[in-house]
Amino acid sequence: MESQILMTPNTSAPSAPQFDFNAWMQEQLQRTEQSLSLWVGVNAPADLGEAMRYAVLDGGKRLRPLLVLAAAQAVQGLPDAAMRAGCAVELIHAYSLVHDDMPCMDNDVLRRGKPTVHVQFGEARALLAGDALQALAFELLTPADDMVPPAIQAKLCRVLAQAAGAQGMAGGQAIDLASVGKALDEQQLRRMHSLKTGALLEASVAMGVACAAVTPPVQQALSRYATALGVAFQVVDDVLDVIADAATLGKTPGKDAANDKPTFVSLMGLDGARSYANVLLQQALQALDDSDLPDVRALSALAHMVVSRSH
């Protein structure tokens, strides 16, 4: 996360200041880490909290919380609701990684540069830690006080539940498991990843937008941005699985090819996949322009970061 992107704002004012994306990102990451540390695994019994915190803290790009916070900022949404939403979507992401890494799924031993949760704590505790993280996500979205209006709470819960369930992440993982060794065309591959990976990224933007009242055209434009970004993320992920080593990637490289899983690289070739990622980046940026929002610099910089990342 060492990006140093400087962006000029989406305005014609000649004297407008530059946008220091790195400074913005570091501030948001610090706030997110503080919130996660405060909320995750506190008072959980029988060392369950330790496994939960191991799964969430001190690792990960935090792309999903950053997308929530950037989208909320773009639409001038409620900051407290946005932080809770960002942490909630990160907990869903973390729980999915815990379960995906287990022997019954991808059977991986390395995640974020350290042993996976089931290797560190055993399969039973890893399963419970994932379950607890999923439940905690929705607890964060429904605080007992009036910090987040009930209507926004309900909308956030619905968006996240849909993205995580059978019509989202879980459904995409099911397709992934059923597709091993099969030849998928681009449309089938896109559908699988739009559910498995894209749904949660799209939900991150939608949850940020849900922290404010916006017009349908703005909502539609940001939805198109999120869709393009979600596919681009997976395309780059497939490229990195081929070209990056374990130390850089933080997880076991080459697993897709070893397991005969269909990828954008296997479908398009390495150069074709890289070119496709740049096409998707331009689609995402065009959607931001179409939103006519006065300040989408953070969302724009995040799109650039997704496509140019090395891990």
Rank of each mutant, 00 (worst) to 15 (best):
A126H: 02
T142W: 05
L177D: 00
D237V: 00
F121A: 09
L78Y: 07
V40L: 13
F233P: 02
A137M: 03
L280W: 05
V306W: 03
T227P: 00
P150E: 14
L200F: 08
D271A: 15
A88E: 12
D80R: 08
K182Y: 00
Y54P: 07
P17W: 01
C157K: 04
G198P: 02
M83C: 11
R53W: 12
Q219M: 11
L67H: 09
V296L: 06
C211A: 14
L127H: 07
L267W: 09
G49F: 08
M207D: 04
Q187P: 00
Q188G: 12
G113N: 13
A226Y: 04
A124P: 00
A226S: 13
M1A: 13
S35C: 03
D106E: 11
Y276T: 04
L97T: 05
E33C: 02
W39C: 09
L66S: 02
L189V: 10
Q283R: 13
L200G: 06
L136Y: 06
H193Q: 14
R274D: 10
P216C: 12
R111G: 03
A82H: 01
L127V: 13
Q120V: 02
A144G: 02
A70Y: 06
R297W: 00
M192N: 10
A284N: 07
Y54Q: 10
R64W: 06
D290T: 04
Q18W: 14
L280R: 11
P143R: 13
D58R: 12
F233R: 08
Y225P: 01
A178I: 07
M1C: 06
L63A: 02
Q30E: 14
T197W: 03
G250Q: 04
K251N: 13
N278F: 01
A161T: 05
V42P: 01
Y54D: 09
P149M: 12
H304V: 01
P262K: 14
N10I: 03
A132T: 05
W39L: 14
A166C: 12
L201S: 07
A85T: 06
A303L: 03
L48D: 04
P217K: 13
L133T: 02
A258V: 10
A166Y: 10
P217T: 08
L48R: 10
Y54F: 06
K261M: 15
Q4M: 15
V218T: 14
